[in-house]
Write a protein that binds this DNA or RNA. Structure first.
Lengths: 230, 230
DNA sequence: GAGCTCATATTGTTCAACAATCCTGCAATA
DNA sequence: TATTGCAGGATTGTTGAACAATATGAGCTC
């Protein structure tokens, strides 16, 4: 009986973690990176044969990898027609921002990971993005903005929320590619991040959360406007 | 050029929705239901051969279905050993509650779907659960509690948050099965739901959100205590 | 009881096959 | 010229066989 309890307790320790990704996971990793960095654009058709030949895996493995990307909304399967890199719609953009407006301000105001160190980390992230702006490095600014939001969400100290947020940020990359990677969607928001970090440094979590809600609504409106009037 | 814009606009309309689930999705649906309703218990090994023979699909299709369940955390793959129905650990329970504490109060306090009608719907859900308690229908109470929390999260009007919440609620089912489906984890929480709906009916969204945070922390502590001292 | 060997079960992945579906190009017709 | 119909080709969705690799369990010896 004692052996039973011990055996059961040990059973719950993830001693056999999947540290070695499966072939399908590896394929999905490669494709995800190509999608997120813009090499594979929205609407691009991913054929099992072509991808399988290029990456050196069988069709079954490719199908499994596709299923993973589809679950992450980075690709979409049209039955009998194929799998395509996802093309975010206005509805997607609205939902992405509804999601962000729920999560980010809540993490900022109530996240249990909030501390002076966390605020200092956010300050670093904002300062690094400022430096990229000085160097006219738009991609760096964009990356810094995403890191700011990722860091905010991580204040919740929830792996499940972190995973959702990674998916949201990946999809946001698709949205920005769709907008032609226009600096106008990244550079001006630095000042909004700066205002939020100032509130935090002044100890005003509620104010920061409210400012972030307003920021996200403005950003959404900006993107939707550009989608309708390109 | 006008044809091009029209073609592109039509392309964004999901005319080819995957209304017909694939074989793998169908298999995953069947297994998910069995896992959530407790027929397939935590730790149960799911062998490709056995499941494939039972449901009448090939091993490749079964593997795809497993991948979907694994992504939902309802199953876990141990390389070279097989796939098992997930067994939530204390760490999982903590993360589930961290996730819920972030999402549910935020949806309650800031969700754009909040309205008199929404409050009335929550009242219905609570009343239905009360009726189940009168009939000593523990499963009905448990289901009513979950419906309460699902309805709360839906106030965010975010498909991505809804999906996360469905996953969380499914995992919570696993947790409750692990606890022997003890009524003590369901029935007493009805009164907590009642208190929250009272705050909402009185127009006190912030108070309801704070009460929900406290409720979730208490529930977490209750479950963790039972896990360590069964 | 501990350690070793061998057989078996199962997994991870590939490949071939076939039915079904969709798309494209070409010919015929109005 | 524009439209329609059809055939062929490309691709998908799924199955089943095959093989290498890995883990587990049983049996045997010390």
């Amino acid at each position: 009986m004692a052996n039973r309890a011990l055996s059961e307790a040990l059973r719950q320790i993830p001693t056999r973690v999947s540290v070695q990704p499966s072939a399908a996971e590896r394929v999905a990793d490669v494709l995800r990176e190509q999608i997120v960095n813009g090499a594979l654009r929205s609407g691009t058709r991913l054929t099992e044969e072509t991808i399988g030949a290029a990456l050196g895996f069988s069709r079954n493995t490719i199908r499994e990898a596709f299923a993973l990307l589809i679950a992450e909304r980075l690709a979409a399967r049209e039955p009998n027609r194929g799998v395509f890199v996802a093309t975010p719609t206005a509805s997607d953009i609205r939902d992405l921002y509804a999601t962000r407006r729920l999560i980010e301000p809540a993490a900022l105001e109530h996240g249990i990971g909030f501390s002076h160190a966390a605020v200092a980390r956010l300050r670093e992230v904002v300062d690094a993005a400022h430096a990229c702006r000085e160097h006219e490095d738009t991609a760096g600014v964009a990356q810094g903005n995403q890191e700011f939001h990722r860091t905010v969400a991580r204040l919740a100290e929830s792996r499940r929320v972190d995973q959702l947020m990674e998916g949201v940020l990946a999809e946001m990359r698709l949205v920005f590619h769709l907008m032609g990677d226009d600096p106008g969607f990244h550079v001006p928001y630095l000042d909004r991040n700066e205002a939020i970090i100032r509130d935090l440094e002044a100890g005003d979590r509620a104010g920061a959360a409210a400012a972030l809600r307003a920021y996200l609504s403005d950003a959404e409106e900006h993107l939707l406007g550009a989608l309708h009037h390109p």
